[in-house]
Simulated scan of single mutants.
Amino acid sequence: MEQWFYLLQSPLDELDTKIQELVFRSFYQFVYRDILFMVRDHSLAEDIIQEAFIKAITKGPQMRSCANIPAWIKQVTRNTALDHLRKLKRDRQILVESFVHRGDTAFEEISVTSEVEVRERDKLLYQAMAELKSDYRQVLLLFYIEGRPYRDICKELGMSEPVLTQRLARARKKLLQHFLRKWADNHE
């Protein structure tokens, strides 16, 4: 694994400032894609990564085992993102991407309709994913979003391929149940 992972186990204030900067940039690059996928907002993703980094450097020196630091870092960051999303939901703020459509009117009407449908579906899908157990959410993100092969996921999470296969199947089934319930509730 990369050396910067192990630098999180030493107190950051004892490290050289250039090394501190390297550790943060490496941390940022390691988790940015996951967090951006979850929140769909660059500035919010940066805020979450900074908060997760602070948690990681605070808890890092207390870690007893360094067996699976990359998975621990990803989990801390994802949990921080989920906390932010719950807070935003509680405050009734909705994250929405803005799109500009150009073209003829008929095309714009079709685009707007399909765009609204896609946004609604995606919003419900993210809400359904947020309701899943963290184990299920983690394997879905690693396999479907990051596109990681089974072997890498098994290695990172410390499980066998049959266990991963079963967990993915259960996660997909639960996600579908949550999503369909939300879809039905939303379209009544």
Rank of each mutant, 00 (worst) to 15 (best):
G158T: 00
R121D: 13
I145L: 04
T17Q: 07
A184K: 13
Q138V: 10
K74P: 05
V100H: 09
S26T: 00
Y6G: 03
K174M: 14
E21I: 12
H178S: 08
L7E: 01
V112K: 14
K18E: 09
R86W: 13
I69V: 04
K182Y: 14
M63Y: 02
A81N: 05
K133Y: 08
S160V: 12
Y144W: 09
I110F: 14
G103K: 03
I73T: 00
R40F: 05
K173Q: 07
Q75D: 10
Q177N: 08
I48Q: 07
W183T: 06
R78C: 03
C154E: 01
R25A: 15
Y150P: 08
L88T: 04
F5D: 00
L7R: 01
I69T: 00
R137I: 05
H101G: 12
S10K: 15
Q127F: 05
Q166N: 03
D91M: 14
A45E: 06
A81K: 03
K59N: 11
I94M: 13
V76T: 05
E2P: 07
G147R: 03
I110D: 15
E115Q: 07
E117C: 06
V100R: 13
I54D: 14
A184R: 09
S114K: 14
S65N: 01
V96R: 15
R86N: 13
P149E: 11
K182P: 11
D122T: 09
L7M: 07
K59P: 11
S114C: 08
K133G: 08
I57F: 02
S114W: 12
V112I: 14
L85Q: 10
V31A: 08
Q138L: 15
F143D: 11
F99G: 08
S43R: 10
M1L: 09
E97F: 06
D122M: 14
G103N: 01
A67L: 00
P11H: 04
L15M: 10
A52R: 00
L180Y: 12
S134T: 13
V76M: 01
R170K: 02
N79L: 07
R102N: 10
E109R: 05
C154I: 02
S111V: 06
A128Q: 00
D185R: 08
E115R: 15
K89H: 05
R90Q: 09
L142I: 01
E188I: 10
A45C: 01
E161S: 13
L22N: 12
W4P: 05
R137F: 10
Q138G: 11
L8G: 02
P70Y: 00
T165Q: 13
Y136A: 14
R64Y: 09
F37I: 06
Q177K: 15
S134V: 10
D47R: 07
T165N: 15
R78N: 09
A184F: 15
E109K: 15
Q127V: 04
V23I: 02
A106I: 12
D135V: 03
E14V: 12
K155R: 15
